[in-house]
C-alpha cells in the first residue's frame, strides 16, 4: 500500500489525545487527595499522591463498597463470557440462515428479532423480576447471563447476517458444488471469512454486558452477583461521592475489554478476504 502521509499521523495524534486524555486524567484523579481535586486553579499533576482508594479496592472487606468492587469485576467477566458464548452459539447458525437461506417470512423474522432489542429495559424489568423471583434466579450470575443473552442474541444475529452478506456468495457456492454439506460450508468456508465480523461482534457483545445497568441494579443486590456498574453506583452514598474512588473503579473497569481487544486484534483486522477472492 501507499506510504502514509505525515498529516495522517497528526490526525492520529489528535485522536489519541482526545480519546486518552480524559482517561489518563481519570487515573491521575484516582491518586489525587480529595481536597486537591477541588482546587481552583486545578493542578493537573497533584503535589501529593494518595493511594488510599486503590488500597481500599484491593484490601478492604467485601462488605465495603470498595472491597465489593473486586468481586464485581469477576462477576462482570463471568457474565460477559457466559453471555457471549451463548449468544454466539445460537446466533451464528441463525445469522447463516438469514444470510444464505431463502424462506418465507425471512425479513419479518429478522425484523422481529431486532424489534425485541428496541423495547426499553424499563418496560420489561418488572415482569421479568417476577419471573426471575419464581425461578430463584435473582442475585445469581446465571440469571443475568440468561437475561443478557436475550438482548445480545438479536444483535449478533443482525450484525453477523449483514456481515455474511458482504462475503461473496461465489465462495460458498463453489464449495456446494464440491459437495460439502451446509454445516461444513458454514464451519470451514464462511466462518473463517466472517472472522473480523465475529470478533467485532464479540467485542460489542462483551461491552453490552459490561455496560448494562438497570437490569443488574434491580436483579442483583448481593456482593456475589453485582456487576461493575452497580458496584460503581454504590460508591455514591445518598448525598456524597468520592470521585477518586469512582475514578479508580473506572480505570480498572476499562482494562479487561482493552485486553480482550488486544488479544483479538489480530483477527479483527486480518486481511482475509483479499486473498480468498482471488482463488
Amino acid at each position: 500500500m501507499h506510504r502514509v502521509r505525515w498529516w495522517v499521523y497528526v490526525i492520529a495524534a489528535v485522536v489519541i489525545f482526545i480519546a486518552l486524555a480524559p482517561i489518563v486524567w481519570l487515573a491521575i484523579a484516582s491518586v489525587t487527595p480529595s481536597a486537591a481535586l477541588l482546587e481552583k486553579p486545578l493542578h493537573f499533576f497533584p503535589a501529593q499522591i494518595d493511594l488510599s482508594r486503590w488500597r481500599a479496592i484491593f484490601t478492604q472487606g467485601q462488605n465495603s463498597p470498595a472491597g465489593a468492587f473486586r468481586i464485581a469485576m469477576l462477576n462482570s467477566l463471568i457474565i460477559a463470557f457466559g453471555t457471549v458464548v451463548i449468544s454466539l452459539l445460537v446466533g451464528i447458525p441463525g445469522a447463516y440462515a438469514f444470510s444464505r437461506l431463502r424462506f418465507r417470512g425471512r425479513r419479518t423474522a429478522l425484523m422481529s428479532f431486532l424489534a425485541t432489542y428496541m423495547v426499553p429495559t424499563i418496560a420489561l424489568v418488572i415482569p421479568l423480576y417476577l419471573i426471575m423471583a419464581n425461578l430463584h434466579l435473582l442475585n445469581t450470575r446465571i440469571g443475568l447471563i440468561i437475561v443478557y443473552s436475550s438482548f445480545v442474541t438479536p444483535f449478533v444475529l443482525w450484525s453477523l447476517s449483514n456481515y455474511m452478506d458482504g462475503v461473496p456468495r461465489e465462495l460458498d457456492e463453489a464449495a456446494t458444488i464440491d459437495g460439502a454439506g451446509r454445516l461444513r460450508i458454514l464451519w470451514s468456508v464462511l466462518l473463517p471469512l466472517t472472522r473480523p465480523g465475529i470478533f467485532a461482534a464479540i467485542l460489542f457483545a462483551t461491552l453490552l454486558c459490561w455496560d448494562e445497568f438497570l437490569y443488574a441494579l434491580i436483579f442483583t443486590s448481593t456482593t456475589a452477583s453485582k456487576t461493575i456498574p452497580v458496584a460503581v453506583a454504590e460508591f455514591s452514598g445518598k448525598f456524597s461521592t468520592d470521585f477518586g474512588l469512582v475514578a479508580a473503579g473506572g480505570v480498572l473497569a476499562a482494562l479487561p475489554p482493552v485486553f480482550i481487544a488486544l488479544a483479538f486484534q489480530r483477527y479483527l483486522v486480518a486481511g482475509l478476504v483479499s486473498g480468498a477472492v482471488k482463488g
Partner: peptide
C-alpha cells in the same frame, strides 16, 4: 485501517472510551 507505524496505540486509545462503562463515563464527565 491505514498501515501506520504504532497503529496498535491508536487502536487501544480508540477502544478505551468504549470500554469505560456508561455509568462511569457519565459520572466522569
Amino acid at each position: 485501517f491505514q498501515p501506520m507505524r504504532g497503529r496498535w496505540l491508536l487502536r487501544v486509545a480508540v477502544i478505551l472510551p468504549w470500554a469505560l462503562p456508561t455509568v462511569v463515563n457519565a459520572a466522569m464527565w
